[in-house]
Design a protein around this nucleic acid. Structure first.
Lengths: 129, 129
DNA sequence: GTAAAGTCTATACCTAGTATAGGGTCAACA
DNA sequence: TGTTGACCCTATACTAGGTATAGACTTTAC
């Protein structure tokens, strides 16, 4: 199949597919006579794997590491588990940061009503502090 | 004062200060004979305002809008309040996304133990789906 | 034959900075 | 007076993960 079909089947845009190729994540198995990229069913599986990883917010470098690891079926998978675990720690941390931000924002929001003038705005006053 | 002192007092790096200037957020009030940027106390206040906004994750464009609004003290401040409110909505939304991600990651994490081989790795198997 | 749809590469753009190169300025000290 | 070191200048490239073009080529359908 050509890139447009792969794009539709995978849900990745054509540009994204070419971008992943440039990043060394993903190759076309072939080129047609007219230099079009040609893919097969295993390309689709590989691309879905990448998409799944991206949906977990794994970086491209991390995905590359996962793919490397996958190529060594007899090695220990602890690096994979560590990666996921570290990611969970990071996400937890990020959530805490955002919760704090949300609190600050809600305090700000309650410092002003809409029918004031700029010079009396409670939000702007808090921002000045 | 020169940029180095402003940097120390504000906690913004020198490059960041010059970056804000380039973005039209923030100007030096003067230049010395040797072309050094010269700042005063009001520069420090302005920069702290910007920093405060950035700590709320407001974008540079949004900060520009706030600064514009600040220059019209007699207008209504509702745009400021809307901005903060919309931000809170976005942050809330992002937190929900991350909570879901965290759940997925923890499900993944529990799918495998460290003493397996790559070909048996529960995490990688989940990623294949 | 030709028009439309699809594809190609290369490049620029996005955010909010950070890092560097290569040079100029200024103050203190020998 | 020379020079050393700290500071500053501009311009440019880089980061992550794409997205969006321009300009050209290929393929398909009528």
């Amino acid at each position: 199949m050509k890139i447009g079909e792969l794009s539709k089947k995978s849900g990745c845009s054509i540009q994204t597919i070419r971008f992943y190729e440039k990043q060394g994540l993903f190759e076309a198995c072939n080129r047609s006579e007219g230099n079009y990229r040609i893919y097969d069913a295993s390309s689709l599986r590989a691309l879905r794997f990448i998409k799944q990883c991206r949906s977990l917010d794994l970086t491209i470098i991390e995905i590359k590491q996962l793919l490397d690891t996958k190529n060594n079926p007899n090695k220990s998978c602890s690096s994979v588990n560590n990666l996921i675990h570290q990611h969970m720690v990071d996400v937890t941390h990020r959530i805490a940061e955002l919760e704090e931000l949300k609190l600050t924002l809600s305090e700000m929001a309650s410092a002003c009503t809409d029918n004031r003038k700029v010079k009396e705005c409670g939000v702007l006053q808090l921002l000045e502090e």
